[in-house]
Amino acid sequence: MKVILQRSGRASVEVAGEVTGSIEKGYVLLVGVTHEDTEKDADYIAKKVAGLRLWEDEDGKMNKSIDEVGGAILSVSQFTLYGDVRKGRRPSFIDAARPEQAGPLWDYFNDSLRNEGLHVETGIFGAMMDVQLTNDGPVTIIIESK
């Protein structure tokens, strides 16, 4: 499992012109699932996201977690994170899990984040989505379970 985390001042996702999720302060998570991923991978990344200290304390140091600053999560499935562009000019997505595996695991991941006490908003799995965000910092972190 691979997650691109972007610290955000505000973010939203729309599907067919309808907002399906929006947050103020928090993290936008672009989530990719590969064939080998399991619930263990999802739990690992959920715990990592919940515990990361990416928010400034009173001294301006990244020392606070998302929970400590009252932040939320906007989770967006993104199979293109497993796009391989080493050969040719068109990406191969052979490493991305099939929708029947990736969709349920993405749902499980979002529930795992909720079990960590986080408020989670989402896009819609498999849909064409418009994601808008204000990257705060900018802070962008790549998290992989393998």
Rank of each mutant, 00 (worst) to 15 (best):
T34E: 09
T34G: 14
T34V: 01
T34K: 09
H35M: 08
H35S: 00
E36R: 07
E36F: 10
E36N: 10
D37G: 06
D37M: 05
D37W: 06
D37Q: 02
D37L: 05
D37N: 08
T38E: 06
T38N: 00
T38K: 02
T38C: 05
K40Y: 06
K40I: 05
K40C: 02
A42Y: 13
A42H: 07
A42V: 13
A42S: 07
A42L: 09
A42N: 10
A42R: 07
D43S: 04
D43G: 14
D43C: 10
I45W: 13
I45R: 03
I45A: 09
I45L: 13
A46W: 14
A46D: 14
A46E: 07
K47N: 07
K47V: 03
K47S: 11
K48T: 06
V49N: 15
V49P: 12
V49Q: 15
A50Q: 01
A50H: 08
A50P: 00
G51C: 03
G51L: 02
G51H: 02
G51W: 04
L52G: 07
L52N: 06
L52F: 12
L52Y: 09
L52S: 04
R53Q: 15
R53N: 08
R53A: 15
R53E: 15
R53H: 15
L54W: 01
L54D: 11
L54A: 11
L54S: 12
W55Q: 12
W55A: 08
W55I: 05
W55M: 07
W55E: 13
E56A: 12
E56M: 11
E56T: 07
E56N: 13
E56D: 14
D57A: 05
D57I: 10
D57W: 04
D57V: 03
E58K: 12
E58N: 00
E58C: 04
E58H: 13
E58G: 04
E58Y: 08
D59C: 03
D59I: 08
G60V: 04
G60D: 10
G60A: 06
G60R: 03
G60M: 01
K61D: 15
M62G: 11
M62N: 14
N63H: 06
N63G: 03
N63W: 09
K64V: 08
K64S: 01
K64G: 10
S65T: 15
S65A: 05
S65Q: 14
S65E: 13
I66C: 01
I66S: 00
D67L: 11
D67H: 14
D67M: 15
E68F: 05
E68V: 10
V69W: 03
V69R: 08
V69Y: 08
G70V: 07
G70W: 00
G70L: 06
G70A: 00
G70N: 14
G70Y: 04
G71N: 07
G71R: 03
G71F: 01
A72V: 08
A72S: 15
I73T: 04
I73P: 00
I73Q: 10
L74K: 02
L74W: 04
S75P: 00
S75D: 05
S75W: 03
V76D: 15
V76L: 08
V76Q: 10
V76P: 04
S77I: 00
S77V: 05
S77A: 13
S77P: 07
